[in-house]
């Protein structure tokens, strides 16, 4: 009997977690992508560029550092699949949508902020990531911060 229980705990529990994590994770991801697409469409005409200098014919009346940041973490499903992938190498496909969401969400937060405060554009946009430490040391990842920074400018003439 004890063995049946240990089998349930050792195989049944992770399997259940895997299924639940997949379903919940998929729903959340789908919703997030929808929200991202909607907000990106709304910001489509808002200029954001990586160049350090403004175009020569622009005149700025005000500038401010803008920061957009998001911390993302893995669900159990993605972690297990990526763990298996880590044994043989190759594209960690389950991480790709996660990081894509993080990048786009961080950018959106940066741009939405700039627009809300009445700025006209953001220049010198940079994206950075940093890994959150995990209390268990090397096992798993607590999360990744995606940081978008840029200089928001208000234009006199455009």
């Amino acid at each position: 009997m004890g063995d049946t229980i240990s089998l349930i705990i050792n195989i049944g529990l992770p399997l259940t977690l895997l299924v639940v994590a997949y379903i919940v994770g998929t729903i959340i991801e789908r919703r997030h992508f929808k929200s991202i697409e909607r907000r990106e469409a709304a910001l489509r005409a808002f200029p954001a560029m990586t160049s350090e200098q403004m175009p020569a014919d622009w005149t700025a009346t005000e500038s401010q550092l803008m920061v957009g940041s998001i911390v993302v973490s893995l669900d159990y499903f993605k972690r297990i699949i990526a763990g298996l992938r880590g044994l043989i190498g190759g594209r960690v496909k389950t991480y790709e949508p996660l990081l894509d969401r993080a990048r786009r969400e961080a950018m959106l937060r940066l741009l939405e902020q700039a627009r809300t405060r009445g700025f006209d554009a953001v220049i010198n946009v940079r994206l950075e990531t940093s890994r959150m430490a995990n209390s268990q040391g090397d096992r798993g990842t607590a999360g990744v911060e995606m940081l978008a920074i840029g200089t928001a400018i208000r234009l006199a003439t455009r």
């Binding site: 997949y22 298996l84 992938r85 043989i88």
Partner: peptide, 25 residues
């Protein structure tokens, strides 16, 4: 224009990926 969002995300279904990895390993 909005950038094409699909380039950074593989179109393999996560379950297909899971199936191949579990079966193979």
């Amino acid at each position: 224009r909005q950038p094409d969002p699909s380039v950074n995300v593989s179109d393999t279904h996560p379950l297909a990926e899971a199936g191949v990895l579990f079966a193979g390993l």
